[in-house]
């Protein structure tokens, strides 16, 4: 794996995990089931990855 690929992966995975984490925290204030909480976090993670990968990879490659 090239250095830029690794840096990109760290950035978009990190931010996506952060988004999923924030989602879980947000669900703690209300009565959500674990399926809702963790299923939702997984979906937020997947969509965040999809959104961030095409944004982060070219930026890191350019630098």
């Amino acid at each position: 794996m090239k250095n830029s690929d690794l840096i990109s992966a760290l950035i978009y995975t990190g931010i996506s995990l952060l988004a999923a984490g924030i989602f879980i925290v947000a669900t703690l204030s209300a009565k959500y089931s674990n399926v809702d909480r963790f299923g939702g976090a997984a979906w937020v993670f997947i969509l965040s990855m999809i959104i961030l990968m095409p944004v982060v990879i070219p930026i890191v490659k350019k630098r």
């Binding site: 089931s33 809702d36 909480r37 299923g39």
Partner: peptide, 11 residues
């Protein structure tokens, strides 16, 4: 369907 299943379907 729960909140997650419903929201996922719309999404």
């Amino acid at each position: 369907v729960g909140a997650f299943g419903f929201s996922l379907l719309v999404s």
